[in-house]
């Protein structure tokens, strides 16, 4: 039973990872990061249920809190970049090179 949850978790993580690596739109990349985080949450909860203890579920809450904070900061950055450059592409924000 738990195997199905774990497979789903791995699939979601992989989809998120591929999205982060391939998509240019910053919002989409952001959503993919969220997807990866939630895939992890699913794995934590699954293992918590399997082992019958509470730590995995607690960690899942921590991850959600961090993810929420990250969204606040990340979206603020993306919005600011969009205001100045009229673009949400991550490839355009490449000034910090060389």
């Amino acid at each position: 039973m738990t195997t199905h949850y774990l497979v789903l978790s791995a699939l979601l993580f992989a989809i998120g990872g591929i999205g982060v690596l391939t998509r240019r739109n910053a919002i989409v990349v952001f959503m993919c990061v969220e997807l990866m985080l939630n895939a992890c949450n699913l794995a934590f909860v699954t293992f918590a249920r399997q082992h019958g203890n509470i730590e995995g579920q607690v960690i899942a809450f921590f991850v959600m809190i961090v993810a929420a904070a990250e969204v606040v900061v990340g979206l603020a950055i993306i919005v600011t970049i969009f205001r100045t450059r009229r673009s949400a592409s991550v490839d355009d924000a490449s000034l910090l090179k060389h």
Partner: peptide, 17 residues
Amino acid sequence: LRRIQTGYVRSYALSIF
């Protein structure tokens, strides 16, 4: 050596992966 720093977030992400 500094040419490695391309400025593309996705390539950094790839190297992390």
